[in-house]
Design a protein around this nucleic acid. Sequence first.
DNA 1: AGGCAGGTTCTTA
DNA 2: TAAGAACCTGCC
Length: 283
Amino acid sequence: MEIRFDDDLDLRRIAESGQCFRWKSIGDEGVYRVIAGGKVLFLKQKAGNILDLSCNEKDLKAFWENYLDFGTDYRSIRKLVRKDDPYLSEAARNGEGIRILCQDPFEALISFIISQRKSIPAISSSIEKLCKKAGKKITLSKGEITWLKKHALSSEGEDDLYSFPSPSDIAGLSTDDLNACSLGYRVPYVRSAAEAVLLGDADLDRMRSLSDEELMEELMKLCGVGKKVASCTALFGFHRLDFFPIDVWIERILSEHYRKGFPYDSYRPFNGVMQQYLFYSKR
DNA sequence: AGGCAGGTTCTTA
DNA sequence: TAAGAACCTGCC
């Protein structure tokens, strides 16, 4: 189905913004394949703010609309950028179209635990291995196959897709299975996080009702979850748009351009969106 | 070939 | 409280 969409939206920039690891560019016509919520979505952006999606209206309303955060007005947030900040102004121009996806908290937690000291290709590769080992197979619907055909794309290679595993799926994996996902020293981190969620020691649903500070505190109780991973989980998995994860890149930007500190007060509660502009622009 | 990668923990003062 | 080493492994 096709919809017109007027707010900021740039699929390529979202895919390359580092917030998600399961967006894949298919072919060379700007088509992306996304796996989330146990489902797959193929989508393509066309001229005139038209979005061509492989789902029907029911699935759009039931899931993808929220996933793509259609309820948030990013154009207005982008306009909050202070005129007296040329660095952020340029970053926001470069990053126009980035949106912060509403991803699953558990998936974000595990993904960002895995991300530590790994390059982006290595992160994606580990996550794919994990999904293949423990996730559920996703079979393409008739509509999805038709959609691919319409875009002159083969469904071969698109028929071996797996959902992100549940806490019990991961907790049930043997050490050998986890090792086979190239997780390295993160194996115990991933396992203990999955077990904590499974047993309710880390209650992600309950965490939704916590304040930002309390959420951070709860997440950091998990082994292998420090400040960076916790804030990424909060921003991308809990959609707390004020979190401002500081990794090595952001650290460099802060020390080069914000000697007196980043003006967080100016952008509350959307500091995380500003962080995305800065990060994307630097990469 | 070998250093480095979107961090965290453990150890040592 | 703070700085520094160690950690797995794939990627460039």
